[in-house]
Amino acid sequence: MEEFEPTIIAFVCNWCTYTAADLAGTSRLSYPPNVRLIRMMCTGMVDPKYVIKALLEGADAILISGCHPGDCHYINGNYKARRRVRLLKEILPRFGFAEGRVKLTWIGASEGVDFAATIKEMVEEVKALGPNQTKEQMVI
């Protein structure tokens, strides 16, 4: 049997983590190809429904990543994101989604190395969790 390859949907902010991902690429760092980046203007605009939809559609994990506290291009979007992640971590595990399927990190524009390491680590963690329960469900 083939090894389980998770799909991770990452909502990353334009100013920090997306730039870090770009830096990881231009620095020729390698990281697992399991992540699909969605570039947002700010983590503060990641509505809980984006995360919920992705998980219901069969994504194995969600990464939300933005600027470090105090560095947000829009002053405070990342603080709002942190509250929403707190909320999702209260709701989703109660419906059987392991807590590790939603992750929040702060990765600054210069931290390409951290971006690559984070993805690598997360892929390992999600492999251990196994496939998301919604993958084969026809009723969602």
């Binding site: 429904k49 939809k53 929403r84």
Partner: peptide, 25 residues
């Protein structure tokens, strides 16, 4: 096609969990 079959209308559970996220507080 992706799952072989889906229930219609779609997005039922999506609606309820989203409303929980938006309004349960």
């Amino acid at each position: 096609k992706r799952k072989g079959a889906i229930k219609m209308p779609t997005d039922t559970v999506f609606y309820h969990i989203t409303r929980l996220a938006h309004m349960s507080t």
